[in-house]
Design a protein around this nucleic acid. Structure first.
Lengths: 238, 238, 238, 238
DNA sequence: GATGAATGAGGGTTCATTCAT
DNA sequence: TATGAATGAACCCTCATTCAT
């Protein structure tokens, strides 16, 4: 007979560790932990409360329901990722093109590295029926697309670079490509990700795509470095 | 004991419609329908049975449990997509390079167009904890990567085309890019997808990436295939 | 996906073996087999039908419902046991007392040996809520008690044997003791049952109880061995 | 979601009655009640919860599953019976033999009288497939057999009493006989049980069996204990 | 008769949520 | 505020029974 015994010793200790943190934070951490450890299906509110070292009632003190709880976690995770992205974007804009792309790629990788395990459960297991996780991710991606498009439009106007004509599509492809490659690599192809060529190739791909070279027509254009240099030069030469 | 069952006219009519189809097929269709209409969390076996116009027992006559039911649906969907892909791949191999890429892209779009709504729920909502759904999708993608890599290796040997050095990464990027762009466009960016430039740009991106032109340096290198010609011109002269 | 495949080859073969038997008999055998092999909880009508090599419909052709099916099996088993008992009882009546007891004990053991495995499931697992198994067993035991009582009464009248005064209780105790000891030994104490002393002791117990010795009054009655000998001698001494 | 719950007056009142008792106790009582009233097959967890005046969830708060629930009930019942038995056994050991037997028989009757109706369902209807109910009963009986055997061995050594040679069988028969007779009488033959002769006869049977009188052969053998004396003497003088 | 696909009431169990303390 | 026992709708699944063929 299993009576409700509570040898919650370890639980209590764990909870104490987080004592400094607010209860909300403790709950959110526990949510992430349980989600990663046990998967979405097993992540019941009771289990989360247990892990957090608080009573189930306390969860409902701060979150109206389970969806809101997961929503807050998603929001928080997305914001962390966005933070990494944004802090990088800042100086991306001022860099010469190929370097900007590389910075963008690295930022994306860094963003995905914030908490890959959590990211994975969030993306793969959370029910996306409501408007929760995936929708928020899409929002972020949409933001990125807009940003990139703006950046490209700016480039096109202020430099002589030759860019794809349909900037909507171009920005979409650039962002989608970098995000998808990064995402898949971080989650499922760690060995590919580890190769130096991974970033190089990904950057190369995006640069080659976005940057159309006029150089072909002007064979002698001496470019110091491969990618970086050629690009600028290419623009509306004629 | 089964007493007078309530008429449930629509249910009966629905059932009669599908009478010609096997029960298994009816159930699978209902599963897809409910999944798309109500989302995974609401797709209970009882709801599916109701939609199928069969009793809950009939589902368990053909599927040992719910997971197997969804598994069968995933399998079926994946096979349909794979069918589209494979039937296209056949002649891809014999085509000159850029056309091969275009064929590949179109095949991927067509594959995703088989049942986009279902594809979406399957990808986004099915719990990927078991081994079924996502794993199967990854299998297919892994197959695609292998195929592409083989194809590229073959190209590199039998032609004078210059390809990326790290073919593992190259194949991964090519497949991931095309799949991701296609997937996202089909599911969430129908207006981008509708533009003629979408395919053009996607093809362009992949071709520009995979194909490095030596022609610039070796103007006379006359390559028979169309492949060489278009791309070549692009690269940096110096 | 588990479709209703029917590689019922072995099933069919099994069924053929019983082809000579009537369908009812085949079903009853299958019922016993499944009951013994899988236990009551797993003995579903479908499983029984499968084992019998007939369709589930055929069972309902011959038995109105599951209870009736098990009822028939119980009836049959009880009758077999009763047959063994009765055929023994016939000559018990004419035997001198201690031998009669021994014959009775042996008959009981033989009766329980008819199909111990089946007997066990029937006794231990069949729901006795209705009036089915246990009730029938009790009927048989009640019959036995009556028989024994009659026998004892007859003995008391026609001989000078001294018997317990309360023949109701005496008969009850005698039958209960022999049945219980036999039952438990056959089902759970095979090693005790195998000892020669088992039967000897059981017979001894009953004889000592039923037969009160006049010897006490006749101190010199020299009995060679303790139990065995004293008893016989006791017989119609007067 | 829990909307306005229906009054269910009796349920509430019943619940209030037991409010003092722990929920576990209430559930266990309800289980026993339903088991006795409706039989095992009808004793669904929902029915038990209803009877207990608690929600079905409360059952699962304290018992991991249905088997554990019944297991706890069996355990509890067995312990109660064992308690009665043990408290009696204490002074059995110090008593002269026939009185010890009588005490044993009375203890067994008292033990079976703890809750005969429950005892009956537990013994007759609980599926003994798992390891719980029947196994536990057998454990108790095995303990009794061991105890009795030890007691007899002690007697044989420390007194001049003549006992059966095979003490394994003797102890088995003694315990089985007393248990079976008691069990059947309590459950199905209340009128026999009510007769004073019932206990007398049962005690008589066991004593006669276990105790072999040397007195016959050795008239003068004066045995201190009451045992020897009573037995012989018992026979009808006339 | 025989078949077996289909039926659906009902069983055990889970877990988000409430509320008296 | 915090607690956690209690709640009960709903889920997945089983299986005795039916009936059109």
């Amino acid at each position: 007979m299993r009576l409700a015994r509570k040898p919650k010793i370890s639980r209590v200790r764990k909870a104490r560790q987080d004592r400094a943190l607010g209860t909300v934070d403790t709950i959110l951490r526990a949510t992430a932990h349980v989600l990663v450890r046990d998967g979405y299906d097993k992540a019941s509110t009771n289990r989360i409360a247990e892990r957090a070292g608080v009573s189930i009632g306390s969860i409902y003190q701060y979150f109206p329901n389970k969806e809101a709880l997961f929503g807050a976690l998603v929001e928080r995770h997305i914001e962390e990722m966005r933070g990494v992205l944004v802090s990088t974007f800042a100086d991306v804009l001022s860099k010469p093109f190929p370097e900007a792309v590389r910075a963008f790629v690295l930022a994306m990788i860094r963003a995905h590295a914030v908490d890959p395990a959590l990211h994975r459960v969030l993306i793969e297991q959370l029910p996306r029926v409501g408007s929760l996780p995936l929708a928020r991710v899409r929002d972020v991606e949409a933001d990125a697309v807009t940003l990139v498009k703006t950046y490209l439009a700016h480039l096109a106007e202020s430099t002589s670079l030759v860019l794809p004509k349909d900037l909507d599509v171009a920005a979409f492809l650039a962002v989608t490509t970098v995000e998808a490659a990064t995402h898949k690599a971080v989650l499922h192809e760690r060995d590919l990700l580890a190769r130096p060529s991974f970033v190089d190739e990904l950057v190369d791909m995006v640069v080659r795509y976005l940057l159309r070279d006029e150089a072909a027509e002007k064979p002698r254009a001496p470019t110091a470095t491969a990618t970086k240099i050629s690009a600028p030069r290419r623009r509306r030469a004629s």
